[in-house]
């Protein structure tokens, strides 16, 4: 009987520390550990979100600072010089016009343009954020060869060749044959174009900026001449057959 009493008293004496240990253990397992783990996770997430916000904020500020009118003007000029589609019509018009200006006869044109892609205008509506693998491969530099003959005086041929440098679309002389006594030259010219990317990339991807050298190039191409393709305008609709061929006083 006395032993039992003693035992009870001993338990009563140690009740508080035992309870504290049990409560601490219980809280550690059920409350503290999950909260701590979540907090650490949230902290990491917070860091990522902060970085994402910073980059988005930077991007939006940069986009707002861009002069849309100026960029649009440059895009238009770029499209003339370095088009997104095969510039067949412009090319022939440019070459024949240049030949006319430089007093050389132009002919014997051979070109193999292949597929002419009709798409890709520089419009925000067409651009998607997510690229597909095939789209990513398509966006690239492309070219085709054109061969033609010019005839004229040597100084005119030289002037024509000089003129090629600043005539749109962009052309590069690859090889040529020339007979000076006949005054004729056959030129192999490579014409470049680049299809537009169909995607813009991730929204938090930074906006690409132009380097100083690239800006200089853009300034230079503003001096390139564009020769409009000749458009034949034929009358459409019905003619008034009772119209007089001249105006009466």
């Amino acid at each position: 009987m006395q032993f039992k009493e003693l035992k009870k008293e001993q338990i009563r004496e140690n009740l508080v520390p035992i309870l504290v240990i049990v409560v601490v253990f219980f809280l550690s397992v059920t409350v503290f550990r999950p909260i701590l783990r979540n907090s650490l996770q949230l902290r990491l997430e917070n860091k990522k979100l902060r970085e994402q916000f910073e980059s988005l904020n930077k991007k939006s500020q940069l986009l707002q600072s861009l002069d849309e009118v100026e960029v649009t003007k440059r895009v238009a000029k770029m499209e003339e010089v370095f088009p997104s589609e095969k510039p067949i019509l412009n090319l022939i018009a440019s070459l024949s016009q240049l030949a006319k200006e430089k007093n050389v006869t132009f002919g014997g044109i051979t070109l193999n343009p292949g597929t002419i892609k009709i798409s890709s205008r520089v419009s925000s509506k067409l651009k998607k954020r997510e690229p597909s693998e095939s789209e990513a491969k398509k966006a690239g530099l492309q070219d085709f060869l054109i061969n033609f003959v010019i005839e004229g005086k040597i100084e005119n041929i030289t002037a024509f060749i000089s003129g090629l440098e600043t005539t749109t679309p962009l052309m590069k002389i690859e090889s040529f044959t020339i007979a000076l006594e006949k005054g004729s030259a056959s030129l192999n010219v490579r014409v470049y174009y680049q299809t537009l990317p169909e995607m813009l990339g991730e929204i938090d991807k930074p906006v690409p900026l132009l380097t100083e050298k690239e800006k200089e190039i853009l300034d230079e191409i503003t001096h390139y001449r564009k020769i409009e393709p000749i458009k034949t305008i034929s009358p459409v609709g019905k003619d008034n057959i009772f119209n007089l061929p001249f105006n009466l006083p």
Partner: peptide, 9 residues
């Protein structure tokens, strides 16, 4: 403007 800038660069 972003698409134009991407195109241009």
């Amino acid at each position: 403007i972003e698409s134009k800038q991407v195109y241009l660069t």
